[in-house]
């Protein structure tokens, strides 16, 4: 064995597990490490990290059959790191699997926050040649989220925003002819959602949450795909920085008090003590997904809610009840 081989062996033996703080080399090639992935107990250089990141996203897309040749994908693009990186990845995947892609951005009108991410969305779509439709809360529903929350109270900001965004994204994706709606949920989101639904004793909600979202199949609901489903959130940020994708790292002003923030902190504390926790929660969820889907159908039937998709008696949009969540929420309607 020559000196170069001996040196490489020595690097491979010591770099994989970086307990020694002086070890800051890529465990695959020995070059300077640019990121520590604690959930994998490994340091990686930029090149190997980027390769791993892209392979994982492509594998997730392939494994769950998220795309097929000629499909039409609406990308839910907020301009935040997850959706913007997802846009770039879908563009990359599209080079070997041609499909049509366009982006939809929902402008809730949140002062001091949405404008910056909207600029990122517009810039990146222009850079990648992706048509962009901006849907304004004000134009769609007559008021911004800020005004709505002044009226309703800020306590349920994330719930209101979530319902309205899902409604608008589904409606516009369908209107624009999409057969898939790509959303940027990452594996941290998955772990948080699993915990939140258990902590609230709402496990049946998880039946509608998976790499291909939507347990209820109906042409009125555009199939939601989640290419970043198995990707940790921090990895998404690192990829964006390494690839020079200019992201506005900012926080929604309504998110601070949200229950999800509490669960995020709780999970990140656990992750620091027990690296890999969030990935294990995500994997456990995927393993149980089929069982949860069956459970969701059981609970829906037991509670007497119609299991089939109908049309909202007020707006005509798809709903599993008599009225959709949006109409009930915006109008506090009970007369149905």
């Amino acid at each position: 064995m020559n000196a170069a081989s001996k040196s490489k062996c020595s690097i491979l033996k010591t770099r994989r597990f970086s307990k020694d703080s002086s070890a800051a080399h890529c465990w695959k090639c020995g070059k300077a490490a640019r990121i520590t992935l604690r959930y994998m107990n490994a340091d990686l250089c930029q090149s190997h990290f980027v390769k791993m990141f892209e392979s994982r996203v492509k594998r997730t897309v392939r494994q769950y059959g998220m795309l097929k040749k000629g499909c039409k994908v609406a990308v839910a693009l907020s301009g935040g790191k997850d959706s913007t990186v997802m846009l770039h990845m879908l563009r990359k995947i599209g080079k070997s699997l041609p499909f049509e892609m366009f982006a939809i951005t929902i402008d809730e009108g949140i002062a001091g926050y949405r404008n910056a991410t909207l600029e990122v969305a517009k810039r990146e779509c222009k850079k990648l040649g992706v048509p962009l439709t901006v849907v304004s809360f004000r134009e769609e529903f007559g008021q911004t989220l800020d005004l709505l929350l002044k009226e309703k109270g800020q306590g349920k900001a994330c719930s209101f925003c979530g319902v309205i965004r899902r409604y608008a994204l589904n409606k516009w994706a369908r209107k624009l002819g999409a057969d898939r709606l790509a959303v940027g949920h990452n594996s941290d989101d998955v772990a948080q959602t699993v915990f939140m639904n258990f902590m609230r004793n709402e496990p049946e909600r998880l039946g509608r949450f998976g790499p291909l979202a939507g347990a209820v199949e109906d042409e009125a609901f555009v199939l939601r795909i989640k290419p970043l489903f198995t990707t940790p959130e921090r990895d998404v940020a690192a990829y964006a920085i390494m690839k020079g994708i200019g992201i506005a790292f900012s926080e929604c002003p309504y998110a601070r008090a949200a229950f999800r923030q509490y669960v995020r902190r709780m999970l990140n504390d656990a992750e620091e003590k027990y690296p890999g926790t969030k990935q294990r929660v995500m994997n456990a969820f995927l393993a149980q997904n089929a069982l949860m889907l069956d459970g969701a159908k059981y609970r829906v039937e037991k509670r007497g809610v119609a299991g089939k998709v109908g049309k909202c008696c007020f707006c005509g949009e798809p709903t599993s009840g008599k009225a959709c969540n949006l109409c009930v929420m915006l109008g506090e309607r009970t007369d149905y």
């Binding site: 970086s18 020694d20 703080s21 002086s22 070890a23 800051a24 300077a32 490490a33 640019r34 990121i35 520590t36 604690r38 340091d43 990686l44 930029q46 907020s78 935040g80 790191k81 926050y113 941290d188 959130e233 921090r234 940020a237 690192a238 920085i241 390494m242 790292f249 900012s250 926080e251 929604c252 309504y254 998110a255 601070r256 949200a258 999800r260 923030q261 995020r264 990140n268």
Partner: peptide, 25 residues
């Protein structure tokens, strides 16, 4: 100017930029 792993040694003359990258929203 470049991302660095946990174990990267730093000295006072290095330019170190810490970025918070996980936010709600």
């Amino acid at each position: 100017g470049r991302l660095a792993s946990d174990g990267t040694k730093v000295c006072p003359k290095d330019e170190v930029k810490v970025m918070r990258v996980i936010f709600g929203g």
